[in-house]
Design a protein around this nucleic acid. Structure first.
Lengths: 146, 146
DNA sequence: TTACAATCTAAACCTAACTTTAAGTAAAGG
DNA sequence: CCTTTACTTAAAGTTAGGTTTAGATTGTAA
């Protein structure tokens, strides 16, 4: 099975221009062509899934290209590739902790405006911080404020 | 208590130029000056914590400025502010799900290269996908592949 | 064979979020 | 008074990650 750039773009809900850009940046090392037109194999399509993941894990397009280059160099780069994934696991772990802090802040602010609306003013809500906050909200407050 | 721009930048480990940029973009609506120099109150410093959180929740600087403008308009904007935090809670919830998929992919790839290194080639590992994968790894594989 | 959609390239353009530069001002210490 | 350090501005520059444009080519359907 092989796919045109339009089909691949459709599968991943990406503009065709983005897929072309990724190719130009070297993210599809084994990509074939037929009379000038790109033909994406299953491997190339899978690459898009990995690209998406690596981007979300914090790698730049250039970093991803470097990884793709490793994959063309065979077993001698297994170690290096493995280490990359270990590093990204750590990065994402930190990101996760960050997001939980963000969630706590949003939860606190949500509650804060619930109360402000009930009471008609913020000052009374401010005055509850931090000791008179409900237990759950105090936890969210403390996680998010420092 | 009030702080100079340098002190605030130090507290949040931000370049002074970034804090100045945020000010220029309107993110510190109540910021005072003394003989031309910015003086940050506790409220202004807290704003930086919120800015950081809102950025991480996916808002642009302009979106954040719009929120800061609401805060200067008093109780009549409580509802709108509350809704913003509710929206961002939903956004972050989705982001969290995305990150868990990313984590699963990284975990799978980590395992994949562990095996490839043990066996000396990738083909044998490829051949295990998906039915002969260890249970945990299969779960990670399936979560991350679609 | 003509028309149409999908593809191709190179190069220019775009946006967000800063960062740097240049030239100047204010307060504090010696 | 002089120097140093932290601050000020406006404007220009930077970077990543695309997106758009213009003009050419290919395969398909009528």
């Amino acid at each position: 099975m092989s796919y045109s750039i339009g089909q691949v773009a459709e599968m991943y809900k990406l503009p065709v221009s983005t897929v072309r850009y990724y190719d130009k940046m070297g993210l599809f090392p084994g990509l074939k062509r037929e009379s000038g037109f790109r033909r994406f194999s299953n491997v190339d399509v899978q690459a898009l899934n990995l690209i998406d993941c690596l981007k979300k894990s914090g790698l730049s397009i250039t970093d991803i290209k470097d990884f793709m280059d490793l994959t063309t160099k065979g077993p001698s780069t297994f170690e290096e590739r493995r280490e990359l994934f270990i590093e990204q696991e750590a990065t994402v772990e930190k990101e996760l902790a960050e997001i939980k802090k963000v969630q706590a802040m949003l939860q606190f602010k949500h509650w804060y405006y619930d109360e402000a609306i009930k009471l008609g003013n913020e000052e009374a809500v401010q005055a509850m911080i931090p000791d008179q906050l409900p237990k759950e909200i105090r936890a969210a407050y403390q996680l998010s404020h420092n």
